[in-house]
Write a protein that binds this DNA or RNA. Structure first.
Lengths: 196, 196
DNA sequence: ATAATTCTGGAGCGACCGCACTAAAATTCG
DNA sequence: CGAATTTTAGTGCGGTCGCTCCAGAATTAT
């Protein structure tokens, strides 16, 4: 029927993730994207539509490969409180390991895309809500196991944890050290109760 | 000696603050700035230098008129724990009142300017450090007054409060409601001890 | 092979970017 | 007043922006 694509759409999307992640939406040009993705401008528009549509695809792939993957992996392999601890510890580790201090693409997008694009804003908010819901599930499970202090409100605590996570991502982007990030997170973890 | 300026530099700077605040650094053009500031392009370059220098002036004026003003006012008029409470409450109120969800210019800049401009990044980090130092002073004063729980670490708690503040600003930018923002903050306030 | 279809690199569109330059207008000095 | 100085509006430079179009290359169905 027709000629086959010469590039791997997923690999190219990963390159696009890196572009938007490190430079932000506005500051990333379509030419930058095409070069880093290893394709021509026409192929980019043919495969993904315009810049904004590509960004939406990038957000989705980032969320699937980073946030959702982490949630699913930790939720399956850890007891509830430890899943939350491991989630935050892993974010700290990855934040410190990244020499570019790129932070979290979702958080960056919440700041510089969401306010100017209501639709993308709702997409970003929905991904953040998934993280919050993970926290809430874990707190509820810990509540039922009697591991948390009496009267722990799972919904309220999940919001606090989400806020702390967002804040940590902001501070990480300014080059915060491990001590700093751990001090930001520690009081939130202590609300979950001391480990056995 | 020479002709006098026809515009008020401070008023023009306020207009520039609004531009950078609502659109971000990259997405704001010098022509946008000149139009909103009510001056010509030549006057802008004559008075403030290039775009980046203007942005540095904007950051300074924003910090003086918003962050430092709030710190000085609340530190002078409230006891230490209430100063922290009032600070966060005021940020929530202003975040909700703003129909554009502009958030905080310093937080926005930490995300989309700091990583690409080391010098401006240090400026932003220094302003955030001023906020953290305010939190630490207040916690230390509350510690000395015996109002806080035993063993409260002022430095560690100030970092947590700063992180929570940053996180709240991110969530506010995605259109979070009052209930959400208050739930994010409440556990941090409870670490300060129950009010009398 | 031929026709049909899709992908590819490259050129180029109009618009806008940050910034610099010029000449006229306005002001304060001698 | 005339000279000096600085701001002003306007114009335009070289470059980049997002995006489109096109001719040719590559592939499959017939």
């Amino acid at each position: 029927m027709a000629r086959l694509k010469e590039f791997d759409e997923d690999r190219a999307l990963d390159a696009a993730i890196d572009c938007f992640w490190s430079r932000g939406y506005e500051a990333t040009s379509v030419r930058d994207l095409a070069r880093e993705m290893g394709i021509g401008g026409a192929s980019l528009y043919n495969a993904y539509g315009d810049k904004r549509s590509l960004f939406a695809r990038v957000l989705e792939r980032y969320a699937n490969g980073t946030t959702r993957e982490r949630i699913a992996r930790l939720e399956a392999s850890h007891p509830p409180r430890e899943a939350i601890r491991a989630f935050l510890a892993e974010v700290i580790d990855r934040s410190l390991k990244d020499p570019d201090c790129k932070g979290c693409l979702l958080v960056n997008s919440a700041i510089d895309v969401a306010p100017h694009d209501a639709e993308l804003g709702r997409v970003v908010a929905a991904y953040l809500e998934e993280i919050r819901a993970f926290f809430q599930r874990m707190v509820e499970a810990a509540n039922q196991a009697g591991e948390t202090p009496r009267g722990t409100d799972a919904h309220a605590l999940s919001l606090h944890l989400l806020g702390v996570l967002m804040g940590m991502r902001v501070l990480a982007r300014t080059g915060a050290r491990r001590r700093t990030l751990e001090a930001v997170v520690r009081p939130a973890l202590e609300l979950l109760g001391r480990p056995h």
